[in-house]
Design a protein around this nucleic acid. Structure first.
Lengths: 180, 180
DNA sequence: GTCATAACCGTACAATGTGTTTCTTATGGA
DNA sequence: TCCATAAGAAACACATTGTACGGTTATGAC
């Protein structure tokens, strides 16, 4: 990727996060982002079709880090001990989420948070559906999956607002309140 | 309230829900609602300041039914047996939610759903905070409260998409997967 | 039934935002 | 150095919003 493109992209992301700290997503106009990023109007539209797509791009970048390859490899390499080690995997993800905390916090602060949550849950469905082989037959499997996904996603949203807790703390809270 | 006002309000609500079944919240313009409701532009703005406020008004109307007085009185009158009867209370609420199902479903079908969820959770916080007197001290009380509220709200959202289950079913699912 | 009130309608308006286009300038990579 | 390509600036048509205003019709109290 061209250096110029990278630079523009970075400027837009930073402008956007700064604005999100000050005002809500729907009250931010594309023009404001452009001004804050100090770029030309046509340049913005060369990179992102809409404001929504900009947000999606930011979320994607975050999640690529949070659910990064080293995590996958790690969990697939020692596959033997994996099944039991969902706790470790969750804690690991929490660590990664903590790295992106400033970005995530600004996104979560308003309506854009709901989009973040939606994308986040897409990843979590994949993560948890493997864990549901032995599910309680009293309750539909699809209910349980939705339950776990929402549960974890909301746990993360809560954590972002409560900095005083560590990844281990939150992992413990999560497993203490969900029937694994 | 004037008959004309009631009529207008009803027309707007119905137009709005019909539109929500066809397209997403943010893609619906005020003008479309006005046309669908077959009213004058200024009439709309005499009733609602913005589209968001219209949604809020609809949600309020729904929740006034769902968390209606007969429910409150019932639960406060026989206070002795109440503590144990959170199950009954939840089931009762689910019944009321089922009455408003068509409206709720259309609202939940897009971004407006997130606003619905937010308002819904405000009510649930009140409902559940009373239930948390005896909470597990391993986990912060505020975490548990958020957990229960989100859990129930998401259960309802899930239910709205899965008509095949009864209120009793869903109540059972909820209590089976949450540590009460 | 009369009549004042208030809710309605329709149109026009300025203001704001969006996404596209065209053309010129600057910059990175071969 | 060269040139493809990204960035920038300005103007465009278009859609949407919220307000204003004057005229019309229905309601409910008497």
């Amino acid at each position: 990727m061209d250096r110029r493109q990278k630079k523009t992209r970075k400027a837009v992301f930073e402008a956007f996060t700064s604005l999100l700290e000050v005002k809500s997503y729907s009250n931010i106009s594309v023009q404001e982002i452009i001004d804050a990023a100090n770029i030309g109007r046509s340049t913005f539209y060369a990179h992102f079709e809409t404001k929504d797509e900009l947000l999606r791009a930011m979320c994607t970048e975050i999640f690529e880090h949070v659910f990064s390859d080293d995590l996958h490899e790690e969990s697939t390499h020692d596959f033997s001990s994996r099944k039991k080690d969902i706790v470790g995997e969750i804690t690991h993800i929490l660590y990664h989420l903590n790295d992106s905390r400033p970005y995530i916090k600004s996104i979560l602060s308003c309506e854009s948070g709901e989009m973040f949550m939606r994308y986040f849950k897409e990843y979590l469905v994949q993560l948890f559906s493997g864990e549901l082989v032995k599910h309680n037959s009293d309750v539909p499997r699809e209910y349980m999956l939705n339950h776990m996904v929402c549960d974890f996603a909301e746990t993360v949203r809560w954590w972002m607002k409560h900095e005083q807790y560590s990844a281990e703390d939150v992992s413990r809270f999560f497993f203490a309140s969900t029937p694994f």
